[in-house]
């Protein structure tokens, strides 16, 4: 493995990277937050959600899949890209049926947290109100298709981290749906402690009988916005 250091810039800030890093990995290490949804540290990047879209020497690229290269000029926190990300987050909201007020994942949900970070109070696109199914067949795990954003984190985590293949996708285009390796979830070998369940960024995959163990108000994104785990804390006034 070549670990030779390279440098490039994000919004004018000099970033050090190792050869083989993606832009997103290098940015994380440098404390620069690039918003993302379908990316997870332990998994291969997939470039699904496009929320991490940056401009590389002027060309739009997904930061999670684009390798860092010496001297590249990356734009990240620009008005154009903030608007683009707002649009993509909006699309994910209207594409599904997301009712944060009675979703168990509220406060821990990455989609909701991103909407808050971007100041979205209501989507500007019309709701599509799709018909999606809920699978409550399994004794310990619930799958609510209404909240699925097709990020594929469960699909990848089940295979890469759990050594199973519980999840996959069927259909295509707007009809693309989360699917299970069996007629229903109970017929699969999924288990509540699976990485695949924890990998879900929304409330699609929920472990039964532990709801609201952490009360609203003390959840992950209740006090600091998503991304603050990467950014250096703002200087105190």
């Amino acid at each position: 493995m070549n670990t030779e250091a390279i440098t490039f810039t994000i919004d004018g800030k000099k970033i050090e990277a190792r050869r083989g890093d993606t832009i997103l990995e290098a940015a994380d290490r440098a404390g620069v937050y690039i918003p993302r949804l379908c990316w997870m540290k332990e998994l291969l990047p997939a470039g699904v959600c496009r929320v991490c879209t940056v401009r590389v020497n002027g060309r739009p690229q997904a930061a999670c899949t684009q390798p860092a290269a010496a001297g590249m000029v990356v734009e990240n926190d620009t008005e154009e890209l903030r608007q683009l990300r707002r649009d993509l987050i909006d699309m994910l909201f209207v594409e599904g049926n997301h009712f944060c007020m009675f979703c168990e994942r509220s406060g821990n949900c990455e989609l909701q947290a991103l909407a808050y970070r971007f100041g979205i109070t209501a989507p500007k696109y019309p709701f599509l109100f799709p018909r999606r199914s809920v699978d409550a067949s399994h004794p310990d795990v619930l799958a609510d298709g209404n909240r699925c954003i097709r990020c594929g984190r469960c699909v990848r985590a089940s295979r890469a981290l759990d050594g199973k293949s519980v999840f996959g996708f069927t259909g295509r285009g707007p009809q693309k749906r989360l699917a299970f390796n069996g007629p229903n979830l109970a017929a699969t070998d999924v288990a509540a402690p699976d990485h695949a369940i924890a990998a879900c960024p929304t409330g699609t995959l929920i472990v039964k009988r532990v709801g609201y163990k952490v009360p609203i108000g003390r959840r992950l994104y209740d006090h600091s916005p998503i991304g603050s785990e990467i950014e250096p804390p703002a200087p105190e006034k």
Partner: peptide, 21 residues
């Protein structure tokens, strides 16, 4: 395009539906 999108990425999967609407 709605019929033929693979549905992998957000903008194509959702955006084309919104454009047609």
């Amino acid at each position: 395009f709605i019929h033929e999108s693979c549905g992998y990425c957000t903008p194509c999967r959702v955006g084309n539906v919104l454009l047609k609407e």
